[in-house]
Amino acid sequence: MTAPLLDIDELAVEYRSRARGAVRAVAGVSLSVAAGEIVGLVGESGCGKSSLARAAVGLTAPHAGTVRFDGRPVTPVRWAKRPAAEVGLQMVFQNPYASLNPRRRIGDQIADGLPAGLPREQVRGRVAELLDRVGMGADTAAKYPHQFSGGQRQRLAIARALAGEPSMIIADEPVTALDASSQAQVVNLLVRLVRELGMGMLFISHDLALVRQIADRTAVMYLGKVVEVAPTARLWSAPSHPYTRALIDAVPTIAARPELPAVLAGEVPDPANAPSGCRFRPRCPAAFESCVDEPALLPIGDRASVACWLTTNGATA
């Protein structure tokens, strides 16, 4: 296999908070996405998945570790213009009501991503083409964001990201703010574009069922760490980490003989005071002596890795 398109290596993100001191939102995560691949990243709120996304795309500076896009390190966006080589790494944000400038026309915002100095006619044509790609009419360009519904705004935000001709998209909870019917529309659009244009996508969501539907591989994050990553089908059929299993069991399903989803004991600890050893230990139904030491994320066969002593010790999962 060639080098991955997006390569996150031992990334750590820290926030300083007056009340809690340094909070390690992402505590050393390695994850890669290949061209043409959709990687899902799931986890509960506060597990650091959004912090990971922002650091990976360059919106925040990582505390440690590196992010490489297409072989070169991603530089945090600061006072300089973003290097052209990095514009191919784009992001779709969670809230389409906040990710479009309310005071600029849609067309102008999309044109932000087009090469400077393009003749006006070509800009107009290219914008219309991008709008068409996301299923919006060319007349949209002259309108303002408030004239559109949430689902339509998310399409427009996707069109804007496409203006940068990305080869990699990081989508941070892109449909969480949308209605059921627009959710399906936007997810389908994203997946179709990724497949058609041969892009890679890191799809971040708290909705496991959704990620299961679209991701080739899925990574599970808990308290700033990736605890398991595996091909999606394998992750669902044979989860190796107890936390992955707990997450899957907690998803309510439609069944002939319905039963309540299983409850995971305890609460997610404060990242400012993460437990020692395995971070899941205090809530883990299978915790044992080894868990006082932190398990590393180790490969367990075909593109799968897990950070759990149950598996990596040779014990039965």
Binding site: L59, V77, Q90, M91, S99, Q109, D112, A157, G164
Partner: peptide, 11 residues
């Protein structure tokens, strides 16, 4: 996020 999005596009 609209400012972030613009900066990511190379503005």
């Amino acid at each position: 996020d609209y400012l972030h999005a613009a900066r990511l596009l190379g503005v």
